[in-house]
Amino acid sequence: MIKHIGVIIEQDNGIMKAANLGMITMARQKHTILFALVMDGSAGALKEKLSSFGISTIIEIRLAEDFQDNPDVRAKAVAKAVEKFELSALFGLSTAMGKDLLPRIAAILDGSLVMDCFDVDLENNIAGTSRYSGKTLAKIKVRGPVPVFGIRPNAREPVQEQKSAGIIQFEAVSLDSKLLRVVKRGETGKDSKISLTEAEIIISGGRGMKNGENFNLLFECAQKLNAAVGSSRVAVDSGWVPYAMQVGQTGEKVSPKVYIACGISGSIQHFAGMKTSGMVIAINLDETAAIMSNCDYYAKADALKIIPEITKLLETS
């Protein structure tokens, strides 16, 4: 039997996040037809791109202006689309936005949800995710109607497949949220503008950065590399950087293609957040630091000197 799979496209200020394409690739399995759910009024602009990654139908969910940003209303709209288009499973990104949206959808559907999946097998309804702060991988069997899968960004390399997607307008009428309202959206200021969970490259600093000022060295280098800046808990607890930058067990779980750890010892709790990175490069003064024996490349050196050198090289190239 052919399954209709809904893929929730995540956008940021009207731009489709790159991580969507890997997610679509993962959803494209035997006996599936893919429906992209687009909620930010840009289905037309995305048509070509989504078609080239195997989307058959784009469902443009139209929301009242006031509710664009409201995760409760968005969740209700998606649940309505599930019913209308007889979707049998949903994929969404396990990003900060996804963590605020997908559980709401699963709660409405009263169905299963597995977050942070690195793999999904739709034939057997089994999702691969991590448990125990990344110390184990778990295969989770989901039962019941319309499971929702939160996909870890960068978990799958995007692969093209040409389709010709049609667009269906879907007016999710009379949706309201009496309980929850968004009253403000702002930025905290000092923080990398690139989202940690989606970045291809992350440069992280730990106690070895010595103070908050020195993090500017990382920000400057990150700008040249189009990277995000992360940190260990020590840097957060010392007040050098905001909590949103913390990687680890009690911070973000990231899987960039490259993770550069500067002055980070590699505690078990830090590893919990970055061990699924593609390549790990450690810069540390201490050759015996844990991270030096569990990385791909290590340099026994002063991060405060190496990072500006890298920035300089990128400026001239």
Partner: peptide
């Protein structure tokens, strides 16, 4: 009506094989 069940747990060790980058600061960079 729905259920999520762990059917398998696998240790996630992922031991990497570190390669040293050495030299002067500018070599390393």
């Amino acid at each position: 009506q729905a259920r999520m069940e762990v059917v398998e747990l696998i240790p996630h060790l992922q031991k990497r094989q570190p390669v040293e980058i050495s030299g002067t600061d500018s070599d390393i960079a």
